[in-house]
Nucleic acid binder design. Structure first.
Lengths: 254, 254
DNA sequence: AAATACCAATTGTCCAGACAAAAATTAACT
DNA sequence: AGTTAATTTTTGTCTGGACAATTGGTATTT
């Protein structure tokens, strides 16, 4: 096994392996080793120093090649332990045009799901919150942040803001924000979502256990009452490699 | 101006600037310089060697800090020329749950739009295409690839596959695939889209003029006839920093 | 005036080595 | 057996330097 890898990493093979800078050749070689199964998911790579020696390049060059593969999510580094081939993450689909909760979604897919609260509190509204929720200066806003976890894997970070009029006590929310609102007689019937892609910043990446810069799905949702009044404003950041959204479209009048 | 920057980059300031490795401090310092306007959009950074000298660190350390900011899209490198503060890109929204063409979309937003064809051809269908379009082994598939450009900025890459039964001659498509299909009496009435986020690979990033690894919105769409037969299968990759999707949801029966 | 050749500035790649920090392993001790 | 301490292994950070590749401007030539 390691013998295979050593032969693949030989300087001759590397030199033959296409064009471009050394670290690109090395990167491609490692990519191929993973793709062909020479390196299986979960396997440890040889230490950087060994790779450098095998391939007759400097450790800096090895690190640069590995850096890019880590950024791509193909490899995972563990300080003091080693570098490993990442386990692929199965994707999850979410059906759009239907307003369902994360918990319902996961249950329908037969996945266990739970949340960890990161924060619950009452605050003076930010300008964004005032605009979106239509708040005056004298009304506070309840903020709830949590980490969404499916099958023991962090999947999303969610920040919700609700007008204090609708939810005066955020600490009363046990598990489901919607359930608590329902209990208080607040029932949103419509929502608008904005979906975009963004590279993860350090803080979010750390919470979700993915490399900085990995693609994430950013979703902003505003829920409305039947009257048209905005109730809730939620910003979520999903792991791009683990979540899909599915939307069904119909021909619209131009 | 450069004086300001030099003082910010002084070793003392850098040392005082929080915790962590040198290159993180330097990265944060540069980030702040852009945020506060000390470095305006389009400005050139001092040469790496100068920064290294100012800050009393090695050039490798400077490069690592800049590398991360380039990966974030905050800075842009130009080989042989310098490193510059990237211009922010205004976002575009797309309304979901309505089947419109790219051209219509852009026109509605008052943006000029055009396409560059990358490829038009007839091929033996891939397994994916056979599955999705329901093709037999004896039927060819027309493939059309193009670069979508809005206001002279590449915005998306689009690969379309259409069964040869519906579109036997892809070279006949002038501008709008839908228009050509309409002319041939083929009118899809329904479509399903899958939206996900992914980090851009080298080839795509180059076409779109963004750094490798930047977040992109990947959209796969399958269009159906009224009969339920699949007509077209399109994979698009949008610049994540320049495109938003908006969806309107309603409460669904649980 | 235009094309060409040259040169300087700047980023890109690469090296060999050093020490720090974290994790895993081994040894020592209770 | 179990716990603690020391050691080794491995990745993380950083230095100083070298040469290549690209760009942009300058001088030269036509």
């Amino acid at each position: 096994m390691t013998d295979d890898l050593a032969s693949i990493l030989s300087p001759e093979r590397l030199q033959a392996g296409g064009t471009g800078p050394l670290y690109v050749k090395l990167r491609r070689t490692l990519e191929e080793a993973v793709r062909t199964g020479t390196l299986a998911h979960g396997d440890a790579l040889p230490p950087e120093r060994d790779i450098a020696e095998f391939a007759a390049v400097s450790r800096v060059t090895v690190r640069k090649a590995i850096d890019e593969l880590v950024a791509d999510g193909l490899l995972v580094r563990r300080h003091g332990s080693g570098t490993f081939v990442a386990k692929p993450v199965s994707k999850v689909e979410q059906r759009l045009s239907q307003l369902t909760s994360f918990t319902e979604d996961m249950a329908r897919r037969g996945m266990s799901s739970r949340s960890e609260w990161l924060h619950k509190g009452i605050h003076t509204p930010s300008p964004d919150e005032m605009m979106i929720l239509g708040l005056g200066t004298d009304i506070k806003v309840s903020r709830l942040s949590r980490l969404r976890i499916a099958d023991d894997q962090p999947l999303a970070i969610e920040h919700a803001s609700v007008s204090g009029e609708f939810l005066p006590d955020p600490s009363a929310v046990a598990n489901s924000l919607y359930a608590e609102l329902e209990r208080l007689g607040v029932r949103p019937v419509r929502a608008v979502q904005r979906i975009s892609a963004t590279n993860m910043k350090e803080a979010d990446a750390q919470l979700l256990g993915v490399p900085v810069g990995q693609a994430g799905l950013s979703i902003e949702r505003i829920s409305y009452l039947g009257s048209g009044r905005a109730v809730e404003f939620t910003r979520s950041l999903y792991r791009g490699d683990a979540y899909d959204f599915v939307a069904e479209l119909t021909i619209g009048a131009t």
